[in-house]
């Protein structure tokens, strides 16, 4: 199994990330209005951000993909004139590292639903850490802070974990993922069986 990223892996990851940043850009503004109320409804879709990482990883299944996808999604929104701008790059970096850490714990070999959900939590924790510096969230009233954390975690598990998992499963059915995944031992086995 070739571990280094080829140009093909990189380009596909970036394109996936860009698609997600377009989606986020389209429905993001709607939710920043809701955000003014301060009741964290917007946090429920925060997971959309990390989704690029899990989807790209589940498709390409190589180390470094999750991090690259997050950085590219941040860069993508930045290029479309996202007002959050360069701070996004910092968020992308730390969220990507959160995902990457979980996948690395399973040695990049597990692609199951619960691992995807764990990666979602990893990314959410990363973003919360940066929020302590950027948004002083630790100085919110306790009930409000709890609401924020719960909303973000639930949102990330549902969107980044569950939804991403089933999305890739549906993509598998189209056959498009076959061409780009690294060959597994199963594939070699099947080839040998055929040769016989």
């Amino acid at each position: 199994m070739k571990k280094t990223l080829t140009l093909t892996d990189i380009l596909i990851t970036i394109v996936i990330a860009f698609i997600f940043s377009v989606i986020y850009k389209l429905w993001g503004p709607l939710y920043s209005f809701v955000g003014i109320l301060g009741l964290h409804v917007d946090q429920l879709i925060y997971g959309m951000w990390f989704m690029a990482a899990t989807v790209a990883f589940l498709i390409i299944r190589k180390p470094g993909i999750a991090l690259l996808a997050e950085l590219a999604a941040a860069q993508g929104e930045f290029l479309f004139g996202g007002q959050w701008g360069i701070s996004l790059l910092l968020y992308g970096l730390i969220q990507g590292l959160g995902c990457e850490l979980i996948f690395a714990m399973y040695r990049y070999k597990s692609y199951r639903l619960y691992v995807t959900c764990l990666a979602a939590i990893g990314a959410a924790i990363g973003s919360l850490l940066l929020d302590v510096f950027y948004g002083y969230i630790d100085s919110l009233a306790l009930w409000n802070l709890t609401l924020l954390i719960v909303a973000r975690l639930v949102g990330s598990i549902l969107i980044t974990g569950v939804f991403a998992y089933y999305l890739v499963e549906a993509l598998d059915k189209t056959g498009v993922t076959k061409a780009i995944r690294p060959v597994s031992n199963d594939d070699y086995q099947r080839l040998e069986d055929e040769m016989r």
Partner: peptide, 17 residues
């Protein structure tokens, strides 16, 4: 999402090759 992703992945793959 599925047609968009599938189509973009295919195109990205061709271009990358």
């Amino acid at each position: 999402a599925i047609p968009l992703l599938a189509q973009s992945i295919r195109r990205a793959h061709r271009i990358a090759v």
